[in-house]
């Protein structure tokens, strides 16, 4: 039985960069523990010699020539979606406190 504590769930939220409202936290503790308990049935399976499946197509090393292909992407239309633009650059909040 999974037993993630409040501290564990807050740490997960922090790692995932999600701020939780106080009333959400207890709900998530309960739900995440229930879901993890369900998926933990896999622990009973003996699969130690089984190769993990990373992908299913069997395709490897997809190469193409190193040439620019014009897909018609337009920088102006990309900038249209950006919440804050200054001098054709994406503006973000301060990262380092001086």
């Amino acid at each position: 039985m999974a037993k993630l504590s409040k501290k564990d769930v807050l740490k997960l939220a922090r790692l995932a960069r999600i701020e939780l409202e106080p009333d959400e936290i207890n709900v998530y503790i309960d739900e995440i523990n229930r879901i993890l308990t369900y998926v933990e049935q896999l622990k009973l399976v003996d699969s130690k010699d089984v190769i993990p499946t990373n992908q299913i197509t069997g395709l490897t090393n997809i190469m193409r020539s190193d040439v620019i292909i014009d897909y018609g992407y337009n920088p102006r239309s990309l900038f249209k979606n950006v919440p804050k633009v200054r001098q054709h650059q994406i503006q973000v909040k301060r990262m380092v406190e001086l």
């Binding site: 995932a16 701020e19 990262m95 406190e97």
Partner: peptide, 27 residues
């Protein structure tokens, strides 16, 4: 600041199920 803007944007922008799956996936 930037970190706070990630936390708030994602905390308020995502719905319950997306947040649940992101946290389980992170775990």
């Amino acid at each position: 600041n930037l970190d706070d803007s990630y936390l708030k944007t994602r905390g308020r922008g995502f719905g319950k199920e997306a947040k649940r799956r992101i946290m389980i996936g992170t775990f």
